[in-house]
Design a protein around this nucleic acid. Sequence first.
DNA 1: ACCGTATTGGAAAGCGCTTTCCCCATGGCT
DNA 2: AGCCATGGGGAAAGCGCTTTCCAATACGGT
Lengths: 344, 344
Amino acid sequence: MAGERAATLSDVAREAGVSLATASRALNGSDRVVRPELQERVLAAADKLGYTPNANAQAMARGSTETVGLLVKDISDPYFSTIAGGLADEAEKHGLLVMLCNTGGQPEREQKFLAALRRQRSRAIVLSGSDTAGVRHTSEVADLLTSYLDGGGRVAAISQPRLPVDTVVIDNHGGAKALAERLAGLGYRRAAVLTGPEDLLVSAERHAGFAEGWLEATGSAPAYVSDEFSRDGGRRAMTRLLENGRNNASEVDCVFAVNDLMALGALAACRQAGIEVGPELAVAGFDDIATLRDVTPGLTTVRLPLADIGRLALELVLGEPSAELRKRSVHGEVVLRESTPPRV
Amino acid sequence: MAGERAATLSDVAREAGVSLATASRALNGSDRVVRPELQERVLAAADKLGYTPNANAQAMARGSTETVGLLVKDISDPYFSTIAGGLADEAEKHGLLVMLCNTGGQPEREQKFLAALRRQRSRAIVLSGSDTAGVRHTSEVADLLTSYLDGGGRVAAISQPRLPVDTVVIDNHGGAKALAERLAGLGYRRAAVLTGPEDLLVSAERHAGFAEGWLEATGSAPAYVSDEFSRDGGRRAMTRLLENGRNNASEVDCVFAVNDLMALGALAACRQAGIEVGPELAVAGFDDIATLRDVTPGLTTVRLPLADIGRLALELVLGEPSAELRKRSVHGEVVLRESTPPRV
DNA sequence: ACCGTATTGGAAAGCGCTTTCCCCATGGCT
DNA sequence: AGCCATGGGGAAAGCGCTTTCCAATACGGT
């Protein structure tokens, strides 16, 4: 059994005593009908020979594949893995396979993957890396996408509104703004924002939204510190913020980290500095990563329906192509927890 | 530009004024050499026409693809997503694409995916779902794998030692045992284990390892409660444990949840019951999920090099095929944190 | 009984590549 | 000068399917 090459459709056809065409029709249910008796014979032969269609050959002949590509910045980040989970489930429903591309945020890798997906004649591509404002990069990516689209491919993005494709837009601005209002409502008065790199769109939007809400509610603009868009970045930013605070009369009573991971780092920094989060200093994040929902103190955050976002993106990209660019908005919901108790 | 079909290799050949064969050789650097001048002409033509090779056609002609499949139970679970991250990075180094298959733990899906990967003529498959003892299921999967292997495919598994393939073996038993010893060393005397379903191998191994270590160190066997292998399962199990404890003179001073997620649920249950984890009751987990490293109280756990495990699995599956089954062992490292302070 | 029309099987033409095999130049050698 | 390697181009045979196009048969109507 080991040495013999895999059975092909011709093998099946011969075994069943029918033509190649008939075998093909019997096995994939084309629009053409084959007599039940023959059908059965073919099925039996296929079974006997352990026949498996060759998807590559089918792709060639049919001119279309059953795979979709998913680009993420870092699949081990719960934000992306949750999105990926939703998307994968949806894909499974459609009988599609998901090609996972972990870009690590490197533009060159992103391009490599895009090229690979194009080569594969992937049915569709969903982009969910973070959109940086690097114009060069974005335009190169846009070129690749355009040629992919010209070839009949479909593309959708998650929260990268600058790309010329259908997009699931996450209301970062609104969510952060709502959060600011709620925090102000709780009695906080001096806020700081821990942001990611300036050119990272998600970060910028959340920062701006928060600042706007805060300004409207309290009349003052929040301070901010930027660092990496990660747990360590959050820790460093928080540490810097605390150092400044000491020399500075105007200490902060509330910190908004632009994502949960940064907030987590901020919590660590606070702990290290001997500051009790909640009573002494409020900390809030964004995303509502599932794994973090139960930590102590409970982290106030803006919940994003991440799995739905993944599903939605796939729906968007598989739906009827339309001339104009489609946007689907998704909103976050503020979740108050112990990390931001009402200020007394 | 929109309507015209993608340029093919023949288009390029014609444009460059060379034969199909030459174009192919010029573009993919076969063992045959083409004159530099021609080479250049072909490259120029390809560039001008925006030529992208058709990976499906190449796969057909070459008889091999550039994709590997990865089966996971749930990609949004940090355990799997971290493994996936390591594997994806390694795959990228080898110029391979990763087909992500989210099985949701459903045997039928698992089989569907396996069949799909076989159809795709995927170069290799890495299995990292959880191995349940359901014999029926495992044997069906084994059949599928065998036929895949016969077709020249390569397969490796992560922590599913019962499958007849190369395996990255995680020393669940040893890790849990070491943890038990350390906890006993800290002065704990009455332990309970929160386990997953009985037939889930990982869970069983960790349970057994802990029990063995505990027995050796303290002379008594730990109690246990089983539930789902998830955060909610942990919460429920812990709740049940606490209820029993009240009526029971022999209260427990230390709880081992067989994974971090269950431990997280246990923490939540404790909080709800007004029990302070650490001083009042020790809790430990297993895996050392990255997102959880900074929570308060710090969770004592057994650190697994998850990303390395993913990398290792890919290495294993891409390495020289060998007659006998290979096993690569990976060991965990006990990490003590505040959730299990020395008992006074 | 005859013709037009479904219905269904099969032959063969691709789909876009890779690779074998053949051929023609070269060039080094005797 | 004559021969045999050697280097490199091209024709063509696949790779395993789908699908068009024909042909053959059966069937309904008049």
